[in-house]
Write a protein that binds this DNA or RNA. Structure first.
Lengths: 133, 133
DNA sequence: TCCATATATTCCCGTTGACAAATATAGCAC
DNA sequence: GTGCTATATTTGTCAACGGGAATATATGGA
């Protein structure tokens, strides 16, 4: 199995879980910390952490520590074809009512919204967005 | 979990296996029967059959019986966002050396090649293509 | 009917992954 | 140091999945 095929398989395994899809939808709005993920999606903290770790192992997200908080963001894609898949996913996710509700809750908590659909690069937002500080 | 989200999860689960990705790449050339799948991919027949069944359960492929042979083809996508994902996948698959080799072998056996990249509809090819008759 | 071919399914086994609950680690404030 | 908060990891359990090998089913032909 060559690198291209392995890379695709890895990406699709990472996408093959609804919790991770919801997390990725949140991340299209910019950086999000773990507390906002588990508050917004209403899932237990260990569950958020576990899926975020999975996404990081798969290379789809990157982290930045800021004191107590760890901010997750979409990783810059090295593989252009993978990027195309992700762009299609991003548009598809916007169609899900569950994800719309997640994004509404995130907006209430942090004031952040998804970027314009044609903006394919992850938005790196350096202002802190957690609401628990 | 709503319908959109469930649909995406189902599709990604189906795509999250390299054997199935290779099969889907074959199917971009049109209808293929099981014998051509397992000959071309050089995998045991039960393995080909099992993964084809998985793809059918997931709604990604459809079948047509023709005597002893069962021809598989890509299903027409009802969901446009899923179709966009699949189109991105189609282009990504063309980058894999393993898949290029699979397609070469298929071409040797049946004379069929992938369609033009901008042809997003599955090609329904009604001529028999198996080489064992 | 019997045989041959194409395809599907079953059985067994090992691995992965998802979950909840509990526990551990890391950084900050005091 | 002690506490407090945010995050990560471990534990145990369970279901899903992948693989090979063997077997079953279905169709067509002599």
């Amino acid at each position: 199995m060559d690198k291209q095929l392995t890379a695709l398989e890895t990406v699709f395994k990472a996408l093959a879980d609804s919790t991770r899809l919801r997390i990725l939808a949140l991340l299209t709005t910019g950086e999000v910390c773990v507390c906002n993920v588990h508050d917004t999606l209403r899932i237990p903290q260990p569950k958020a952490s576990r899926h975020l770790a999975y996404l990081r192992r798969a290379g789809l997200v990157e982290t930045r520590r800021d004191g107590l908080w760890i901010h997750y963001r979409l990783a810059k894609r090295s593989n252009p074809v993978v990027a195309a898949v992700e762009e299609a996913v991003r548009e598809a996710l916007a169609e899900s009512p569950a994800i719309r509700r997640d994004l509404e809750r995130l907006k209430k908590q942090t004031g952040c919204e998804p970027a314009a659909p044609d903006n394919t690069l992850p938005i790196i937002q350096l202002t802190a967005r957690h609401t628990r500080a």
